[in-house]
C-alpha cells in the first residue's frame, strides 16, 4: 500500500512541469565545487584526469580494485545466507519499481516483449528474475568480470525456462557494440562502483530506444549511508566484506536528477525516484523521503 502511495507521489512529481522539477532540483543540488570540499574525487567526472588514469589493459569504465573485489564475491553470489542476501531481498522491490516505470506511460512499454540490457548484472539476480517474467522477450546481462559471469551462467542453467531468453556477455558498456536499442536498461547497485559515472551513464544512454527507460538503484552519500553501508554492514556486522562500498563514490538523488535534466532528450516524459530502507525482520520497504537518506531507485525515460 505504502509503496503504491509513494509511487503515485513520485509519478505526480515526474509529471509536473519541468520548471518545477528544475526548481526542486535547484534547491537541494550541491554545486560540484561544494562537493569537492568533502569528497576526494568529484562525484561526477566526465573524463578520467591524469592522476586517475586507469591502468593499461583495463577499461576506463571499470575500476580494477572493484573487479577483483567482486571476483572474490563470485562463489557466494547465490548463497541465500551469504553476503549477497540483502541484494536478493531487494530484488522484488527492484522489479516493482521497474514495472511501475514501464507502466507509467499507459500502453505496454513493449508489445512484442521487453528487451532488457542489465548492465553490471553480477551473478544475475535481477537478470534472471526479469527474464522469467512472461512480458520479457530477451535479456542481456553485461558484466566486466568473466569470473562472476561464470557463476551467473552456471546458475541460469538451473532453470530451463531461461534457456534462450537470457544471455550473459563479458563486456563493459563502452565495448558493447550492439546496434539494437533496448526497452529497458538497468543499473542496479552499479553507479556507486564506477569511477566516472557521468561518462558511464552517457555510454548507457546510447543503448536505450526512444521511449525506453533507464532504471537504476544506488546509495545517497549521507552520514546515515556511511553509517549503515560502511560502519554497520562492513565493519560491525560484516554482512558484506570490507571494501564492498566506496562511500565517496555514492551519488545523491538530487545529483542524479540534475545530471539527467541536463541530458537532451531525456526525462521530459518520466523521471522518478523512490527511497527504500532495509528494516531487519521485514525486508526492504519503500519509505517516502528516504531517497535523500540512503538507498534509492531512479528511473528516467528517453523522450519519444
Amino acid at each position: 500500500m505504502r509503496l503504491q502511495f509513494l509511487l503515485r507521489r513520485a509519478r505526480a512529481r515526474a509529471r509536473a512541469p519541468s520548471s518545477l522539477n528544475n526548481a526542486y532540483a535547484r534547491t537541494i543540488r550541491i554545486p560540484p565545487s561544494q562537493n569537492a570540499r568533502c569528497i576526494s574525487t568529484s562525484t561526477f567526472q566526465n573524463k578520467p584526469d591524469a592522476r586517475n588514469q586507469p591502468t593499461p589493459g583495463t577499461h576506463g569504465a571499470v575500476d580494477p580494485d572493484e573487479l577483483s573485489h567482486f571476483n572474490a564475491l563470485a562463489s557466494t553470489w547465490w548463497d541465500a545466507q551469504g553476503p549477497s542476501r540483502l541484494l536478493h531481498l531487494m530484488n522484488p522491490i527492484r522489479i516493482d519499481f521497474t514495472q511501475h516505470c514501464l507502466a507509467m506511460n499507459g500502453a505496454p512499454a513493449a508489445p512484442d516483449g521487453l528487451r532488457v540490457l542489465d548492465v553490471g548484472c553480477g551473478g544475475g539476480i535481477f537478470s534472471e528474475s526479469i527474464a522469467r517474467l512472461p512480458t520479457t522477450a530477451h535479456v542481456v546481462g553485461l558484466d566486466p568480470s568473466e569470473e562472476i559471469l561464470t557463476v551467473a551462467r552456471a546458475h541460469a542453467k538451473k532453470d530451463p525456462t531461461l534457456t534462450g531468453k537470457l544471455t550473459y556477455i563479458n563486456s563493459t558498456i563502452d565495448d558493447y557494440r550492439v546496434e539494437q536499442q533496448v526497452d529497458l536498461l538497468t543499473l542496479f547497485e552499479v553507479v556507486e562502483h564506477v569511477p566516472y559515472p557521468a561518462a558511464f551513464l552517457q555510454s548507457c544512454m546510447r543503448h536505450v530506444r526512444p521511449g525506453g527507460w533507464i532504471v537504476l538503484s544506488t546509495i545517497a552519500r549521507t552520514g546515515s549511508s556511511w553509517f549503515t553501508t560502511k560502519f554497520v554492514a562492513e565493519d560491525l556486522l560484516r554482512i558484506v566484506p570490507r571494501g564492498t562500498h566506496d562511500w565517496y563514490k555514492y551519488i545523491n538523488e538530487a545529483e542524479m536528477r540534475a545530471f539527467f535534466e541536463k541530458q537532451a532528450g531525456w526525462g521530459a516524459q518520466g523521471m522518478l525516484s523512490m527511497g527504500c530502507l532495509y528494516v531487519p525482520g521485514f525486508g526492504w520497504k519503500a519509505v517516502k523521503g528516504s531517497e535523500h537518506i540512503g538507498n534509492y531507485f531512479f528511473g528516467v525515460r528517453r523522450d519519444l
Binding site: H88, N91, P92, I95, E128, S129, R132
Partner: peptide
C-alpha cells in the same frame, strides 16, 4: 504468487 510476480524461481528459498 509473490515470487512469480517478481520473476523468482518458485523453488528458491527466497
Amino acid at each position: 504468487t509473490e515470487g512469480i510476480r517478481h520473476g523468482q524461481d518458485i523453488g528458491s528459498s527466497f
